[in-house]
Nucleic acid binder design. Structure first.
Lengths: 106, 106
DNA sequence: CTGCATCCAGCATGATACTG
DNA sequence: CAGTATCATGCTGGATGCAG
């Protein structure tokens, strides 16, 4: 699982594509801090693993759209459960972190 | 979320601790390929984020047990859903990979 | 617009040795 | 048993420039 989307950006790409197909530049702008290089690599990797599709439209200027496959739809629900948990648990995590840092001031 | 357990070993640690508390050496043996150093770092990180507890028993020889916290219990279900999906989707992923590699022989 | 190639720095990780 | 300390290194990923 983590071998598929465990890197820094792939998960975010999947989140963006959750609302529907997106173009390369749209993703680049939506995902704060991603470089063109890393976005390309992530997209290639996701495509290779069958998690997204890449569609080239023969226009000028070039247009490429990325979309999630059925494989990803199957896990949308547990993924969103995890997302909800992350938002809920955020404060507890921060608190735990502060408590730990006070106990071990290194 | 991935910031918490996105590294190479933390997720596996959580899986091992899913069956109950474990000692340092038990984890080291159960998790194939992990070095003492990385196991230590992962455990410290999980502890700092409040996902596991570390209990030292004042015995000779020393004994330390790690266990998951309630925070982790909350996501056991979606996590297992993801695991089940990973096992089911495995073959499809491999197939997609082969198809891709044939299309793009670089 | 959508990439790919190259270069290079920095961090993460493994190996190894040592300790309470 | 359960770590810590130190060193060497390899890969990740950013920056930059080029291209169809």
């Amino acid at each position: 699982m983590l071998a598929l989307i465990g890197d820094k950006w792939s998960a975010q790409v999947l989140v963006e594509l959750g609302d529907g197909p997106r173009r390369f530049t749209q993703l680049e702008r939506a995902i704060e801090g991603v470089s063109r290089r890393m976005l390309t690599l992530s997209l290639r990797n996701l495509e290779r693993n069958g998690l997204i599709t890449r569609t080239v439209y023969p226009d000028a200027p070039p247009r490429v759209e990325y979309a999630t496959t059925a494989l990803v739809e199957e896990i949308r629900e547990p993924l969103e459960a995890l997302g909800a948990w992350a938002r809920r648990a955020g404060p507890a995590i921060v608190a735990a972190r502060q408590a730990y840092d006070i106990r071990s001031p290194n």
